[in-house]
Design a protein around this nucleic acid. Structure first.
Length: 397
RNA sequence: GGUGGGGUGGCCGAGUGGCUAAUGGCAGCAGACUGUAAAUCUGCCGGGCUCACGCUCUACGUAGGUUCGAAUCCUACCCCCACCA
């Protein structure tokens, strides 16, 4: 039910195949973020057509709404929204960071004020595991303590050490859940009319730990060490990057960790990133990514192209009959001219938000596919260098 | 014809003696966004010079006037709206 095969390396860059209960993912791969069980603005079919093979869900958001029991009762995250493919749930740890003004951290866990109705909700490592188990993703993430990128050594140490202590609790609770099978989200539990015809996928879930330590090399190494002391893991995530630290810091941390991570397990860089970040990270040995930028920036009118970023509302696109990105094979680029996309944004038509989100998702997925092909051929680094040069060269396409 | 109300920057609309190149909103222009409290947020937005601070010119229907000083007060005129004939 879980297998990772490293197929090729090109320098530090890697190409592999990840087999999960709900399907197979070829790496390097970008995973679109579907916080609420939906990649914002896109249907599962559209996400699939964009080439994505695995999507994220969020423990905290799905716990608040609709509640993990609803998702479980409807057959788990993959089946609930008829994505029917691999999923990964984030643990809620990132909300410790992003909802900083609305939460209180104790050793036991984190109490959040719900952004939905203001009610107080407590998530502990154990609760996060229970919720993720009920959601039924293929991969569950450890409940971690993310600190801002500019956090000093002491704060970063505190977050990193707490993350390790919480990891023990996550691991113990997750093992119990897997062992008992309690609350597993098989479709057999459901049998709800017509929807029951979808084949049930027996659920088995794997738990991945998260390296923390902020921008501090010694803390990063201690975090990794602590995680490796708690083997076995089927994959390892790097968290706490792209949270406000300068880019060179991210590169340095990746270079520090890359050679020390087990080669036979996938490495997942959480929350990253922009196209340039993907290539930089792949070149430093990362296999998996997720990022909200594809859909958020898409909704905000910003699209990636081979020649850099394009703000689709730009006045000079008013009469442009050219596709968004002439080299892109997505529905948006195959079909619509820039002038029409610009019009949709200016007129605040929601189709525009969807079309740009779709393009950006496809852009990152395709970037992963291209990187993979070049790694298999041993041409990744030259290709990547040239790609980045062009991307940064002309900001205006 | 009479009475009352009103004419403000691309539009709508505040202001009713100095703090006003003039609140807001819209439109326009530019930008940001990295494990989603975001279809969000930020900046610019009369002209000229300046990277900027700033300087300067022209501006609150038109023409005069009062005043050290007027979009704000006075006079005349033009136009718009409402009601009454």
């Amino acid at each position: 039910m879980f297998d990772f095969t490293l197929e090729a390396t090109d320098g530090v860059a890697r190409a592999g195949t990840l087999v999960l209960p709900h399907g197979t993912v070829e790496t390097p791969a970008f995973m679109p973020v579907g916080t609420n069980g939906a990649v914002r603005g896109l249907s599962p079919d559209e996400v699939r057509d964009a080439g994505a093979r695995i999507i994220l869900g969020n423990t905290y958001h799905l716990h608040l709404r609709p509640g993990e029991e609803v998702v479980r009762a409807l057959g788990g995250l993959a089946r609930f929204g008829r994505w029917n493919g691999p999923t990964l749930t984030d643990s809620g740890g990132f909300q410790v960071f992003s909802l900083a003004e609305l939460r209180e951290i104790t050793e036991d866990g984190v109490t959040f004020r719900s952004p939905i109705d203001g009610s107080l909700r407590t998530i502990t490592p154990e609760r996060s595991m229970e919720i993720q188990w009920a959601l039924g993703a293929d991969i569950a993430m450890a409940f971690d303590h993310v600190v801002p990128g500019q956090a000093g050594w002491e704060l970063a140490r505190e977050g990193m050490e707490r993350t390790l202590r919480w990891l023990d609790r996550c691991k113990a609770r997750h093992a119990e859940l897997v062992a008992t099978g309690h609350g597993r989200s098989d479709a057999q539990d459901v049998g709800v009319g017509a929807s029951a015809c979808l084949s049930a996928v027996p659920l088995s879930q794997t738990l991945w730990p998260i390296i923390q330590g902020g921008a501090h090399d010694d803390l990063r190494l201690r975090s990794l060490e602590g995680i490796l002391e708690r083997e076995p893991w089927t994959g390892i995530a790097i968290g706490g990057l792209s949270v406000g630290e300068p880019k060179p810091v991210m590169h340095r941390v990746l270079e520090l960790l890359g050679p020390r991570l087990p080669v036979d397990r996938p490495r997942y860089l959480m929350g990253v990133g922009f196209p340039e970040d993907l290539l930089e990270a792949i070149g430093r040995g990362v296999d998996l990514f997720d990022c909200v930028a594809a859909t958020r920036n898409g909704r905000h009118g910003s699209a990636w192209t081979a020649d850099g970023k394009v703000n689709i509302r730009r006045a000079d696109l008013r009469l442009s009959d050219a596709p968004l990105d002439a080299e892109c094979d997505c529905l948006t680029c195959r079909t619509y001219p820039r002038a029409y996309l610009r019009h949709l944004f200016v007129a605040e038509e929601m189709l525009g938000l969807r079309l740009l989100s779709l393009h950006n998702v496809r852009f990152l997925v395709r970037l992963g596919e291209q990187a993979r092909q070049h790694i298999l051929r041993g041409t990744f680094h030259d290709w990547s260098r040239e790609w980045l040069r062009r991307y940064h060269g002309k900001e205006r396409a």
